[in-house]
Amino acid sequence: MRSLKTFYLWLVYSFLYLPMAMLAAYSFNASKYGARWEGPTFEWYRDLANDSALLEATLNSLAVAFVAATLSTLVGTLGAIGLWHYRFPGQTFLQGLLFVTLMSPDIVMGVSLLVLFMALRVRLGFWSLLLAHVSFCLPFVTVTVLSRLNDFDRRLIEAAQDLGAGEGRAVWHVVLPLALPAIAAGWLLSFTLSLDDVVVSFFVTGPTFEVLPLRIYSMVRLGVKPEVNALATLLFIVSLGLVSVSQRLLRKEQP
């Protein structure tokens, strides 16, 4: 029975990881097509480094992800503190709206934002992409920070105020430091969501501004290519690093 349980855990993990592991193996395989091993090579990584369109798309993506993550972390953290610290009319509605936005499928968001940008005559490119990415990251940051704040004892703020700190100092010196791990985790999550997004970006970017996922999309649709294996391996390693940092930040035992 025990070994059956272990076997099942292994089975699901293999399902999740084997396809990615195979891509990583292919990325060092000299054979251009098929699964036969024909000796190790770095050729596909070299091709990747020489693909200027891909490099440009990567830089574009990193720029959008960095600015979008920072903006949504600022707005989201501020919003989470507002929701936690103050009572104001429409609060329940706002929380409901956050929940709906969090659950709404990317495709609906992409379509709606495209219609909005056309109505407001926003040209599709960097700015439209940035506004869209902040919009889908925002609920994630707010919820991450808010759930961290909800774990605190509200009396901490009262204690700070009893000790003579003004409300502003109490927020700045007590609430922010305590929420910092969640804020950092929210930033990392937004950065990743922005780098990964295919569906929303597909609708709201213009021909002059290509981002990495859409570049990959056009490469992948044309069939299996060894450079894509190399690129996939690199992206997987990046996610692995980001997740370990974020898990460390959100671990409950640590203050």
Binding site: M20, D196, P213, I216, V224, F236, S239, S246
Partner: peptide, 9 residues
């Protein structure tokens, strides 16, 4: 956290 397009690929 891994690019879902890459995973589909």
């Amino acid at each position: 956290w891994t690019n879902s397009l890459v995973r589909i690929y």
